[in-house]
Computed example of a mutant assay.
Amino acid sequence: MLAAHSLKQHHARQAAQMLKVGKARQDHNLVFCASVGTPLDAANARRAFRQITKNVGSEPTGRPANCVTRLSPS
C-alpha cells in the first residue's frame, strides 16, 4: 500500500512538473524521468542517488541496486 501511495504522489508531482515545462515536455510514459520527460542519464541518476543516501545518513557502497536492497525493510 505504501508503494502505491508513494507512486500516486510521484505521479501528481510529475503532472505539476509537466505543466511548468509545457511544450518542451516529452511523454515517454516513464515512472522516473528527467524534468522534461526524457529517460534519466545514468550518471545523473547515480549522482542523485548518492546525494539522497547521504542526506539520510547512509553512504552508499557498491552499486545502487545493492544499496537499495540494504535500505529496504526485510
Results as ranks from 00 to 15, higher is better:
Met1Ser: 02
Ala3Gln: 12
Ala3Ser: 09
Ala4Pro: 00
Ala4Leu: 02
Ala4Val: 02
His5Tyr: 08
His5Gln: 12
His5Gly: 05
Ser6Asn: 15
Leu7Asn: 00
Leu7Lys: 00
Lys8Pro: 00
Lys8Gly: 02
Gln9Tyr: 04
Ala12Pro: 00
Ala12Gln: 02
Arg13Trp: 01
Arg13Phe: 00
Gln14Leu: 07
Gln14Asn: 03
Ala15Leu: 04
Ala16Tyr: 02
Ala16Thr: 06
Ala16Gln: 08
Gln17Ile: 06
Met18Ile: 13
Met18Leu: 08
Leu19Ile: 10
Leu19Trp: 10
Leu19Gly: 09
Lys20Asn: 06
Lys20Met: 08
Lys20Val: 10
Gly22Pro: 03
Gly22Met: 05
Gly22Cys: 05
Lys23His: 08
Ala24Met: 08
Ala24Phe: 07
Ala24Trp: 13
Arg25Trp: 15
Arg25Ile: 13
Gln26Phe: 02
His28Pro: 03
Asn29Arg: 04
Leu30Tyr: 04
Leu30Phe: 03
Val31Phe: 01
Val31Ser: 01
Val31Arg: 00
Val31Thr: 03
Cys33Phe: 07
Cys33Asn: 08
Ala34Thr: 10
Ala34Trp: 05
Ala34Glu: 14
Gly37Gln: 08
Thr38Val: 01
Pro39Gln: 02
Pro39Val: 01
Pro39Phe: 01
Leu40Ala: 07
Leu40Asp: 09
Asp41Leu: 14
Ala42Ile: 09
Ala42Asn: 14
Ala43Tyr: 14
Ala43Trp: 13
Ala43Asn: 15
Arg47Glu: 11
Arg47His: 12
Ala48His: 01
Ala48Lys: 02
Ala48Pro: 01
Phe49Trp: 10
Phe49Leu: 10
Arg50Glu: 14
Arg50Met: 09
Gln51Asn: 11
Gln51Gly: 10
Gln51Glu: 09
Gln51His: 07
Ile52Phe: 12
Ile52Gly: 05
Ile52Met: 14
Thr53Val: 11
Lys54Phe: 08
Lys54Asp: 11
Lys54Arg: 15
Val56Lys: 06
Val56His: 08
Val56Asn: 05
Val56Met: 11
Gly57Thr: 05
Gly57Met: 08
Gly57Ser: 12
Ser58Ala: 13
Glu59Asp: 13
Pro60Met: 06
Thr61Gly: 07
Thr61Lys: 10
Gly62Asn: 06
Gly62Asp: 04
Gly62Ile: 07
Gly62Tyr: 07
Arg63Gly: 03
Arg63Ala: 07
Arg63Tyr: 12
Arg63Asp: 07
Pro64Gly: 00
Ala65Asp: 11
Ala65Asn: 08
Asn66Gly: 08
Asn66Gln: 12
Asn66Arg: 06
Asn66His: 09
Cys67Lys: 11
Cys67Glu: 11
Val68Ile: 12
Thr69Val: 09
Arg70Ala: 10
Arg70Thr: 05
Leu71Ile: 12
Leu71His: 04
Leu71Cys: 07
Leu71Gln: 14
Leu71Val: 06
Ser72Met: 04
Ser72Glu: 03
Ser72Pro: 01
Ser72Trp: 03
Pro73Trp: 04
